[in-house]
């Protein structure tokens, strides 16, 4: 199956470990867009990313990048994509310049001028050793490499973990610039950082190794709603509308999957608020724990 509209297609991906399983994970990212891959720690985000990069061997399922099988065309695919990990995996003892010298020859389309320009734009001193760089600088170095070999797909595992707000805002800017070219796409995992979620076109939510939902972010945020009201509004029937409910002495707050339906029931009686992705994640994870 070749599909050129989707830059990344994951289909029924399964991987078993001793204490954790990734079960039937499927989603697709259309070319030109940004997808946020959200879920709590240990939900399978890194495992999925490592499977895409062939750092882990899948048990079953299929992964297509640029419409090509990720194992069969591994080299061709990796030439056209880039990665940013949550931790540093570069050689700490080396300078930026030497590290780039090592990496550059592996890429078929390395552009030295672009790399130099990125270093200048990102204010990175090429003589500095990697261990002297701050977390944000290391991330920008990864991005400089990504931009210098013309990557069309950027995959990032928890790129904002441990970044200060300044660095996060810079990252946001770089990503927004990257997708000015409508052939480029970004796939990033996070356990929720509101600033980065702003630019996500699609959201895929994974919990305990299974996909909870994968859809355009605007659709999700428009369908779901947070309802707040007094506890006596809740009976067995109305409780069924909720994904999760939190009650306290003075009232309740809960997430509903169908805002319109809830509105018909609670109009004038309770408060309806726009949910955040964080709300959706928290209530879903907690709701499942209760069940």
């Amino acid at each position: 199956m070749v599909d050129t509209d989707n830059i990344l297609t994951v289909n029924k991906l399964t991987k078993h470990f001793k204490d954790f399983s990734l079960k039937n994970v499927s989603f697709r990212l259309p070319r030109g867009y940004v997808m946020g891959f959200i879920g709590p720690n240990g939900s399978g985000k890194s495992t999925t990313i490592k499977l895409i990069l062939n750092l882990l061997c899948k048990d079953s399922g299929q992964i297509n990048v640029f419409g090509l099988d990720n194992l069969e065309h591994e080299l061709a695919i990796k030439n056209r994509m880039a990665f940013v990990f949550d931790e540093n995996h570069f050689y700490e003892e080396l300078s930026i310049r030497d590290m780039a010298r090592i990496i550059a020859p592996f890429y078929r389309h390395w552009e030295p001028q672009t790399f130099e320009k990125c270093l200048k734009d990102f204010v990175i001193n090429p003589k500095q050793k990697i261990k002297q760089l701050s977390k944000g600088m290391k991330m920008k170095f990864s991005l400089a490499i990504a931009l210098s070999h013309g990557a069309e797909l950027l995959i990032m595992d928890e790129p904002t973990a441990g970044l200060d707000p300044m660095a996060r805002s810079e990252l946001l800017d770089i990503l927004a610039t990257l997708i000015q070219d409508e052939r480029n796409s970004v796939f990033f995992s996070t356990h929720i950082t509101p600033d980065l979620d702003k630019i996500a076109d699609y959201v895929t939510f994974i919990n305990q190794g299974e996909i909870v939902l994968s859809a355009p972010k605007d659709d999700i945020l428009e369908k779901y709603g947070v309802i707040k009201g007094s506890c006596d509004l809740l009976d067995e029937e109305s409780k069924r509308l909720f994904v999760g409910i939190k009650t306290n002495q003075f009232g309740f707050e809960g997430l509903v999957r169908d805002k319109e339906k809830a509105l018909r029931r609670f109009r004038g009686l309770a408060l309806l608020e726009k949910p955040s992705l964080e709300d959706i994640m928290l209530y879903t994870v907690r709701g499942e724990h209760h069940a």
Binding site: V34, L172, A176, T177, I199, D201, K217, D218
Partner: peptide
């Protein structure tokens, strides 16, 4: 989308 820091969609 870039200027307003919102999604392209």
């Amino acid at each position: 989308a870039k200027e307003l820091q919102i999604s392209v969609i």
